[in-house]
């Protein structure tokens, strides 16, 4: 790939999703765009960039951004946080839950592995505090390919063997003739899925008591990280908390979003929603 094409792709990703693609990762571009090139009958990445430039409003640009950005993830990644959410954070919030419903948002949730892991922990929980509340989980991702996979709830042979014990696999999934595994209707019933770009306003998704946005912002340019966190923080309910990935922080990115006083490692609004602003 020549320098001009690399610049075009990097700019497309940056504007589309905030993602920075360093020159050292240029080898990833071809691999990630290959399925689109194949489908469109194009030979080179530069051909695809030509088509996208000629038709900026087409769906192709959005698809390319999603392919460049979206990452796959595993079941029970960052297990300690997920366990803490189900064992402590949600039970703590349960008594004051509006309409007896707690809402959880997995932002940048790939094919739904994080949402599934939470749903599994909720199914297995015998915490009395959660008995009378409904916990709704929303998984969103920028990539429509990912969200269709999440909606289908089917996972491959290799995916289901990473992070899931055999007991959990047998209990919560059933094997299909294809060799893939399908999540149980019970788990699926707890999870809603939407395609959503975190750079966009998220008010249509509603308010959330717990938001997970892990390993999403670290690859973004700083102003985009601010924008994403601002969009997310505006959807936090009063008392709601945000979990970022290990080594990620909201410090200095959004005025009014601070380390939570109640939940270790999480962030919370300490001002009214309308007073949140991107830090200068």
């Amino acid at each position: 790939m020549d320098e001009t094409t690399f610049q075009d792709v990097a700019e497309l990703a940056l504007n589309g999703s905030g993602q920075l693609i360093p020159p050292s990762k240029s080898y990833l571009i071809e691999a990630r765009l290959a399925p689109i090139l194949r489908r469109e009958g194009l030979a080179e990445v530069s051909d695809l960039m030509g088509v996208i430039k000629a038709r900026p409003a087409s769906k192709l640009g959005t698809e390319a951004v999603a392919a460049l950005t979206s990452k796959t993830t595993g079941f029970f990644t960052g297990r300690e946080t997920l366990t803490r959410i189900v064992d402590h954070v949600l039970p703590m919030m349960a008594p004051t839950a509006a309409d007896n419903t707690l809402r959880v948002w997995c932002a940048g949730g790939a094919a739904g592995q994080e949402a599934c892991s939470l749903a599994i922990l909720l199914e297995e929980s015998d915490n009395e505090a959660l008995e009378d509340v409904r916990v709704e989980i929303l998984s969103t991702d920028i990539s429509e390919a990912m969200t269709s996979a999440a909606r289908a709830g089917q996972f491959g042979h290799f995916d289901v063997q990473k992070g899931l014990s055999i007991h959990r696999l047998l209990k919560h999934f059933s094997r299909l003739d294809t060799g893939d595994w399908q999540i149980s209707p019970k788990l699926a019933g707890r999870i809603a899925v939407r395609t959503h770009n975190l750079l966009k306003d998220a008010s249509g998704l509603g308010e959330f008591d717990v938001i997970l946005c892990r390993n999403v912002i670290s690859g973004m340019a700083r102003p985009m990280r601010s924008r994403v966190l601002l969009n997310i923080a505006r959807q936090l309910s009063d008392g709601g908390v945000l979990f970022l990935g290990e080594g990620e922080t909201a410090d200095g990115l959004v005025d009014g979003l601070k380390a939570s006083r109640d939940v270790r490692g999480a962030f919370a609004r300490d001002v009214e929603r309308s007073a949140l602003t991107a830090a200068a």
């Binding site: 042979h157 290799f158 063997q161 990473k162 992070g163 014990s165 055999i166 007991h167 047998l170």
Partner: peptide
């Protein structure tokens, strides 16, 4: 296999990540 006393189960084919995870 599990009822007969196995602790975990790996479905072949496997890779290093699967063995590590299990």
């Amino acid at each position: 296999a599990m009822r007969s006393g196995a602790n975990e189960f790996i479905m072949k084919p496997f890779d290093a990540d699967i063995i590590h995870s299990k």
